[in-house]
């Protein structure tokens, strides 16, 4: 996973960048408010690194399990196209419709 670096101050620029990553358009006052909130929260929670020494393994799952698989068989929860599209804000000829995409295909 990405490398460590010390936690910087939460600045409006940081919050603005995070809002772009999180795809949430934020107004200037929201950014100001979030910058203050986040700064306070981060200063309270940054202490996790005090005890997280390299010898401690990380826990991702509270109850360890492994090799949980399903057989390669079509299941009982396949949706009809009508069901699949039932919540679509906009659809056309069996497909979901979105606004123009600016940029490149991933």
């Amino acid at each position: 996973m990405p490398e460590t670096s010390s936690s910087p101050e939460i600045t409006p620029e940081v919050v603005r960048h995070l809002s772009e990553l999180a795809k949430i358009q934020l107004g200037e006052d929201e950014i100001t408010l979030l910058t203050a909130d986040l700064g306070q929260i981060v200063s309270n929670i940054a202490k996790v690194s005090e005890v997280a020494t390299p010898d401690i393994p990380a826990t991702s799952h509270p109850i360890p399990l492994q090799n949980v698989f399903r057989p390669d068989v079509v299941g009982d929860n396949v949706l009809t196209a009508e069901q699949a599209l039932s919540g679509a804000p906009e659809q056309f000829e069996g497909r979901f419709v979105v606004s123009a995409i600016l940029g490149e295909e991933q």
Partner: peptide, 23 residues
């Protein structure tokens, strides 16, 4: 495979749009 990587939806080419789906 018969079904998808993480869902039991059919994995076949050429089906009508949005018919090879589970939630």
């Amino acid at each position: 495979t018969e079904t998808k990587m993480f869902s039991a939806a059919p994995n076949n080419f050429g089906a009508a749009p949005n018919t090879n789906l589970t939630p």
